[in-house]
Every structure is written in structure tokens, then in C-alpha cells.
């Protein structure tokens, strides 16, 4: 049988007495956009951090293309094709937009220990970094410092950096957070364009965006997945309605 792209097998993680992952099972198939929804504090970001390798699960296993990556360091997972965009945007603030994208490309392109040739003279790398910036609409501002960008632009840069590494799986943690209605719509359009090319695990609160983008949805409540299915199935699921969708009008 075909392995899914990403498989989480009974992940457990606690902070002191607080269980943030209480036996999470989840599979992301090749090519699909899989949304992970759940109330604030459900443990979504913590789960992404475990997948990306920044946090170690207390128990359970993580497989990427059938390979056990549970104990692999974060940077090695990134090189295996995990591209992560953080919930709290965190580009290298004091560096230019292009340098940020270059660092993303460089991570996948071999040795960072070259000490003589200027990076800006490495045409293939610069081209690839510019292409990633152009994809998200940041070509115009490539020489600006990341810290001088608007919030929306920083979210775009976050995405460009995840894309520049040519990932097999994009981990997007609330890409719409803090965006105005217009910027949100642009971001949804952008993700629509990406979804045919990448497998995506999308954490998002914006339900319109989730139902527009997701092929499948998993619902995380108090550290456990209470339902997985197509958008239609999730909408109809009584447990989900009770636990989550019913609270739609309270802001998260």
C-alpha cells in the first residue's frame, strides 16, 4: 500500500500537567491540502512544531514518506522537504527580503561554508530566490529590510521562504492571521494557486478559507483529533458542531 506523505502515529506531548497532544493520529496524502482546525489552545502549533522537529514528542512516531523522522533534527527534516511558515512571522528582520529568500534557497543547495564568492553573484541561486519572491508578489520590495515590510507582506515573505526550499510538504500555521479582508482574499488566491503543486498541512481559523481550500479536514480538540473527513463530512459531523463549529461567532 502507498505510504501517505506524512503520518503521525499516536503522538503524545505534555507541558508539565498540560496535555497538548493526547494520542494524535493523522495522515497527509501526497498532493492533498489537509486543513487542521480546532479552537485556540487545542495544540495545533505544538503539533506543527513536533512535525517540524522543533519539539520532541513524549511518545509516538512521525513518518515522512514512510521514513521514521521522529528523532531527526529540525534542519534535517527541512532538507527532506518540510517547508514551514510560522504562525508568528519570523523572517531575519534585519536582513533584506532577497537575503531572506536566498537563505531559504541556500539551505537546500549545498554547502553554506563557501567563503569567497559573493552570494549575489551566484546567478542560479539568486534567480531561484527571486522566483519564490515573485510567486508571492514581493518582487518589488526585494531590497527592503524584512522589518520594514507591512504585516501582510511579512506573511507573504514567510510563505516565500517556505516555498523557496522546494518542499514536498508545506506546513502553514495560520497564514491568514492578522490580515485584513483584502489581504486575506489575496492569500487565499495565492494558496489556491499553490495547492495543485504542493501537499499542504494548513492550520487556519478562517473557516471560509478552510472550506475553500481543503481537500480534507481534521479537527483537533484538547490535543486529540475528533474527526477527519471531507469538508462536507466535517460540516455535517455532530461532534464537530458541538465541540467547535458552534462557537464560530466567538473570535478565536
Amino acid at each position: 500500500m502507498n505510504d501517505p506523505l506524512l503520518r503521525l502515529d499516536d503522538l503524545h506531548k505534555s507541558f508539565g500537567g498540560l496535555k497538548v497532544s493526547a494520542g494524535v493520529n493523522l495522515a497527509v496524502r501526497a498532493g492533498e491540502t489537509h486543513a487542521l482546525i480546532g479552537p485556540n489552545g487545542a495544540g495545533k502549533t505544538t503539533l506543527i512544531a513536533q512535525i517540524a522537529g522543533e519539539l520532541r514528542p513524549d511518545a509516538g512516531k512521525i513518518f515522512l514518506c514512510g521514513r521514521d523522522i521522529t528523532r531527526l533534527a529540525a534542519h534535517k527534516r527541512a532538507r527532506l522537504g518540510l517547508g514551514r511558515a510560522f504562525q508568528v512571522t519570523s523572517p531575519m528582520a534585519g536582513m533584506t527580503v532577497l537575503d531572506n529568500a536566498l537563505l531559504a534557497v541556500m539551505a537546500q543547495m549545498g554547502s553554506p561554508l563557501r567563503m569567497w564568492r559573493p552570494v549575489r553573484g551566484e546567478a542560479a541561486m539568486v534567480e531561484e530566490a527571486r522566483a519564490a519572491l515573485a510567486r508571492v508578489g514581493l518582487a518589488e520590495v526585494e531590497e527592503e529590510k524584512a522589518r520594514d515590510l507591512s504585516h501582510g507582506q511579512r506573511r507573504q515573505l514567510e510563505l516565500a521562504m517556505a516555498l523557496a526550499g522546494r518542499p514536498r510538504l508545506l506546513l502553514l500555521d495560520e497564514p491568514m492571521a492578522g490580515l485584513g479582508p483584502r489581504e486575506s482574499r489575496d492569500m487565499v488566491d495565492l494558496l489556491c494557486g499553490l495547492k495543485d503543486h504542493y501537499a499542504i498541512l494548513l492550520v487556519e481559523h478562517d473557516m471560509d478559507a478552510v472550506f475553500a481550500l481543503a481537500d480534507r479536514i481534521s479537527v483537533l480538540v484538547a490535543g486529540a483529533i475528533i474527526a477527519t473527513g471531507t469538508p462536507r463530512q466535517i460540516r455535517a459531523d455532530a461532534a464537530v458542531r458541538r465541540a467547535y463549529l458552534g462557537e464560530e461567532d466567538t473570535p478565536c
Binding site: K76, M92, L103, A104
Partner: peptide, 9 residues
């Protein structure tokens, strides 16, 4: 932290 997430050691 961001560097590691990009794949840098």
C-alpha cells in the same frame, strides 16, 4: 530558530 526551519545546520 528560523534558520534551522529552513534547513540550515
Amino acid at each position: 530558530r528560523r534558520m534551522a526551519a529552513l534547513g540550515h545546520d
